[in-house]
Deep mutational scan, measured.
Amino acid sequence: MKVIFLKDVKGKGKKGEIKNVADGYANNFLFKQGLAIEATPANLKAL
């Protein structure tokens, strides 16, 4: 799943980066902690 990092995550990505991560990691950690959002066309356009 492509995500947009909202904050720096050690070993994974920096704020503003768009990266592919495992679905479970994105859903269970990044999204719940507010560290990233899904890289949907609408979210990409908002950058």
Rank of each mutant, 00 (worst) to 15 (best):
K14H: 15
D8W: 04
K10M: 15
A42L: 09
L30W: 02
K19L: 11
I18V: 14
K45F: 02
L44I: 14
M1R: 00
V21N: 05
A36M: 01
L30Y: 02
Y25T: 07
K2F: 04
V21L: 07
N43I: 05
K7H: 12
A22R: 06
D23E: 15
A46C: 10
L35M: 09
K14V: 13
I18E: 11
K2N: 14
L35G: 04
A22L: 10
L30A: 02
P41L: 04
K15N: 09
L47Q: 12
K45P: 09
N43W: 02
F5N: 01
P41S: 09
K14C: 14
L6Y: 04
I18P: 01
K19E: 08
T40M: 05
K19Q: 13
P41D: 11
K45M: 09
L35P: 01
F31Q: 03
K12T: 15
G34H: 04
K15A: 13
A26L: 05
A46Q: 15
D8I: 02
L44W: 07
N28M: 05
V21D: 02
I4N: 00
L47N: 15
V9C: 06
L6G: 02
N28Q: 15
K2I: 10
L35E: 06
Y25H: 09
K2C: 05
F5E: 01
N20T: 07
M1T: 06
F29S: 09
K12N: 13
G11W: 10
V21Q: 04
I4E: 02
Y25P: 02
V3N: 01
F29K: 10
V3F: 00
K7P: 00
E17H: 03
K45T: 14
K2M: 05
G34C: 14
K19C: 11
L47E: 06
K12C: 10
K7D: 10
N20P: 13
N43A: 07
N27I: 12
A22E: 12
E17D: 08
D23P: 10
N28P: 03
V21M: 04
V3K: 02
F5Y: 05
A26Q: 00
N28S: 13
D23C: 08
A26E: 03
A36S: 01
K15M: 05
K12A: 14
F29V: 15
F31C: 07
P41A: 13
A42C: 11
A26C: 07
A46D: 14
V21R: 01
V21Y: 11
K15C: 07
A26V: 02
G11I: 00
N43Y: 11
K45W: 12
N20C: 13
G34L: 07
K10I: 15
K10Y: 13
I4F: 15
F5T: 00
G16N: 10
L44H: 11
V9Q: 03
F5Q: 01
G11S: 09
K32Y: 04
G24N: 12
F5K: 00
G11P: 03
N43K: 12
N27C: 12
P41G: 09
G11M: 04
L6W: 02
F29D: 03
G13R: 01
A22M: 08
K45V: 08
A46T: 11
Y25V: 13
G16A: 08
N27A: 10
K7L: 08
K19S: 14
I4T: 03
N27L: 12
K14R: 12
G34S: 11
N27Y: 07
A36W: 01
G24V: 09
V9L: 08
N28G: 13
N28W: 01
I18T: 02
G24S: 13
K45L: 10
K15V: 10
L30P: 00
N27S: 13
G11A: 11
D8F: 07
G34V: 04
K15H: 03
L35N: 13
N27V: 12
L47P: 07
K15F: 03
K10C: 07
D8K: 05
K45A: 13
D8S: 14
N27P: 00
T40F: 04
K10Q: 11
F31G: 03
K7I: 09
Q33H: 01
K19R: 12
K45R: 08
E17I: 02
I4S: 02
K7G: 07
L47G: 02
L47W: 09
P41Q: 15
K32Q: 15
F5W: 04
A42Y: 14
K10T: 13
Y25A: 08
F5R: 00
T40R: 07
A46Y: 15
T40L: 08
A22T: 15
K10G: 09
V3C: 06
A36E: 00
P41N: 14
K2H: 05
